[in-house]
């Protein structure tokens, strides 16, 4: 009888701990993802020169809400075009601060992740009432996808911005790319902080 009572006591404690851990873990895990406020559709253009990738160009299409807020703020004369002054302000206040997050661009060249990413040729425009960003990331020295894969992923670790690649014309290649080069997009890596990982692999020359 005593043994049975002790057994029940232990079982109850285990159930209690399990219940409590479940609640805490569930609440804790729910915190992690699924909360972006700005939605971006992106396209990547690969620039090839002598079989090397010299730069990547990114096109970002923003959602209605963020577009509207930004257009109202920066297209001051409401003519649907960002004039040079407006563009400079937009770049200074919205785009340049993203440099501290590497513009949410993650690049692995021949197995090594690029630590500092510099963007160039920033342009912004209004296209059918939506905000569009266009910028380039030069690869210096250029990447040789024959020597190792060139991997890239757009991901905001703070989850303010959500990136998804376009459904059509996802990737564009400018310049000559060897027929042996292949692009691959992996899904479902969000748990490891990167999503829609684009891998470019070429066979050795």
């Amino acid at each position: 009888m005593d043994l049975k009572f002790k057994y029940c006591q232990m079982l109850n404690k285990i159930i209690a701990l399990f219940l409590y851990s479940f609640c805490v873990c569930f609440v804790g895990r729910a915190y992690i993802y699924a909360n972006p406020d700005v939605w971006v559709k992106a396209r990547i253009t690969y620039y090839f020169e002598d079989n090397l990738v010299t730069q990547l160009n990114y096109l970002w299409n923003f959602d209605d809400f963020f577009s509207s807020r930004t257009i109202v703020k920066y297209d001051r004369n409401s003519n649907g075009i960002f004039e040079s002054e407006e563009l400079a302000l937009l770049q200074r206040e919205i785009f340049d601060p993203l440099s501290q997050f590497n513009y949410h661009v993650n690049i692995w060249k021949e197995g090594n992740k690029l630590k500092k990413i510099m963007a160039k040729n920033f342009k912004a425009r209004i296209q059918t009432k939506k905000l569009v960003f266009d910028f380039s990331i030069p690869l210096m020295p250029p990447a040789d996808p024959g020597e190792g894969p060139l991997i890239t992923s757009l991901f905001d670790k703070k989850l303010v911005l959500d990136f998804s690649l376009f459904k059509k014309k996802i990737l564009i290649v400018k310049g000559f790319m060897r027929p042996s080069c292949k692009f691959q997009i992996k899904r479902g890596k969000r748990s490891q902080n990167f999503s829609q990982i684009v891998t470019l692999k070429c066979s050795k020359k």
Binding site: L171, K174, G175, F183, I185, G188, S191
Partner: peptide
Amino acid sequence: TTISLPEVEFVEEEGISFYVQLT
């Protein structure tokens, strides 16, 4: 420069947990 749309192979990550799928 030649502009082309390369073929893209989509690969599903193996062993995706239920939590990642839900997310």
